[in-house]
Amino acid sequence: MEYVPFARSIDLPPYRAILAVDAKGFTAEPGSTHEAISKSLLDLVGDALTGAGLQAEWDRPAFLGSTGDGFAVGLPTHVLPHLVDPFPRLLQERLAEHNRQGRRRLQLRVSLHVGPLPADPENPNWTGNGDARNDTHRLLDSAPVKAVLAAASPQVTFVACIFSDRVFEDVIAAGYAGMQPDRCLPVMATVDDKAFSRQAWLYLPEVSGNLLGVLPHAVLPPPMDGEKSERPRISGPRVRRNDGQVATAVESMTQNQGGAR
């Protein structure tokens, strides 16, 4: 019998880690290259996940769905700390090696969220749909992460991550991941033409020089042993935009560059 929302209670699906990835500038590439780029993304991400000790989870995901310029994958929640660290750093390293070899240069956006989603590992391409997955894709398409990757040097910064507030609170601020909270920058994630606005957190495993004054939290050194790390309470450095209004640096950068891919 088809379920009618709000008419009766049903079991809540298990919570899952949702990792989404896409390539900057994918649609500007000739269509004849899209299949090869998509295959490269799967190989590079899979290699980084394997390096993070997650090969078994990658080999049998709860779901795996292509988005054309990227994909989303569902993984068990207990691996979330490893998706925060070391996965982004390993992905940055794999992309640096890939780009050094003279292949098509890639820069990737990565979003990470967690929430209840149905899944059928026997049919991973046809499952895993729900609000949590939709929000993961909205984070991936949001203005701050697009703007920061557009402003970063394509010679140095190959990965820009955006973590949901739930991931930040439950995994990073709670101390489960091998990352100081001060390495993340708080932003308001919004998407053009979408009714979406969420607190989120930017993280760049490799910050290029032209971003050093824009993302101070991303480049702060970790505290000395025994020194308590406080969660950042501000929404980023304040700057004056072109229209004269005061805004965060990321907001200003988004306005000036249009958040383009």
Rank of each mutant, 00 (worst) to 15 (best):
R8A: 05
S40Y: 10
G74V: 14
A48I: 07
T77Q: 11
T127F: 06
V187C: 08
L220W: 08
R100V: 00
F158T: 07
P116D: 07
M179Q: 13
P154K: 01
V239A: 06
A177Q: 06
L139N: 04
L185W: 11
E169P: 00
V239G: 08
G258R: 02
P144F: 10
L95I: 07
Q92D: 05
R241V: 02
A62Y: 15
G244F: 03
D120G: 04
L95F: 06
E93P: 00
Q180W: 14
D135N: 13
L204H: 08
Q257P: 00
L80H: 12
V110E: 09
A132F: 04
A56N: 14
I10E: 08
P223Q: 14
E227P: 01
P154I: 08
E57A: 14
G68M: 05
L149P: 05
M253L: 15
L220G: 07
P30Q: 04
V4R: 07
S197D: 08
P5V: 07
E251H: 13
P76V: 06
T248C: 02
F6P: 00
R233T: 14
D43K: 15
R198H: 11
E251T: 12
R94G: 04
G46I: 11
L44Y: 11
D243I: 01
I162W: 14
R241Y: 09
